[in-house]
Amino acid sequence: MKEIIVLAEHRRGELRDVTWEILSKGRQLSESMGAEIGVALLGKGVSKIAEVLKPKAHRVFLIEDDRLEFYNSETYEKVLTQLITERKPPLTLIGHTAMGMDFAPSLAAHLKMPLATDCIGIDAAGEAFSLTRQLYGGKVNAKVSFLKKGPYMVTVRSGAFPVIEKEALLGELVKLPSPLTDEGLAKRFLQYVEAAVGEVDITQADILVSIGRGIKEAENIPMVREFADAIGGTLACSRPVVDKKWLPKDRQVGTSGKTVKPKVYIAIGISGAFQHIAGMKGAGTVIAINKDPKAPIFSAATYGIVADLFKIVPVLKDKVKGLKKIRVTS
C-alpha cells in the first residue's frame, strides 16, 4: 500500500509543534488517497519520542545514530535520501521551519522531486495535488499545481493546519540502519547559542503595544511608548524594528522572537506576516491599527482600525489619559 511520509521535527529532546500539524494533515490526505502514513524520526536516543509518535502513524521509521544527535542538513539529506528511495512515498511532508528551509530544497533537488514550499493548503485528487501558497507577504493567495510527475515533496507552514484528534493507529516501529559513516562532513555542527535575555519579559505582560515598520523612524517610537505607558502596557515590536536596531531583540514577537499571550495585543503599523502572527495569535483580544484595509493583520485581529497611526495614536493616548483622570476625580 502507498504511504505518505512525514518528517518528525525535534530539537533538544522535544518534538516541535509542526510535527503534530503535518501528521494530522498527512493522516487526512492519506485517507483521501487510500494510502497509509509513516513518520520518519532521525536522532540519537530518541526511542521515547518514537513511542509518542506511534499512535499517529501506521509506521514509525526510526533511524538512530550518534552522528544524528544534532540536526545537520548533510546527515539529514543522506538518511532521508535512503528512506525515500526505498519506500517511494508519493508525498513527503516537511515543516517549512528553520530546519525544513535548510534542507528540504536541496534534498528535493538531489532526488529530482518536484517541491512546493511553504504551503498552507494541500488537496489530493488521485495522484495529483492542488496546493495553496501565499505571495507578497501574505497579501495574495495562490493556487499552485505540480507540472511534473511525482513523487512529490511539500513543505508546510507552521500553524497552517489544525491538529485534529483521530482514533489511534497501531504504529509499527521500523528500525532502519543508518547510512552514515565516519567520512568527514563539509558542514559541521558546533553548538547552540541561547536567545539573549533582556530586561523586560514581554511574555509576562497583560497588555502589549506592538509596533512595526509603519512607525517609519526610531524618533517616532516615544509617541507609542507614551500611549503604552498610559494604558499600563509594555512595548513590543515586529522583526524589522529589531533588524534596524530600534528596539532590542527581546521585544520581538514572532517565530524567531517570542510567543506572547497577553490579554490585549495592540498591533500598530504591522502588516501581519505569518511569522509575526504565529507569535501573537494566542492573545485574548487583538486590536490592529493599519492604514491598509487589506493588511493581513486584520484577519488575525478581534478589532480593526483603518487609520494613519500618526493621527490615531496621539488621540488614543490623550483620550486614555483624559478618561483615566475623569474616573479618578469623579
Partner: peptide, 18 residues
Amino acid sequence: DIQLEKIFLPPVGEGAEM
C-alpha cells in the same frame, strides 16, 4: 516543477470587527 494556476485575495477582516 510547479505552476501558478491563479491568485486570489485572502479573506480580509475575517473575524475583525472594524
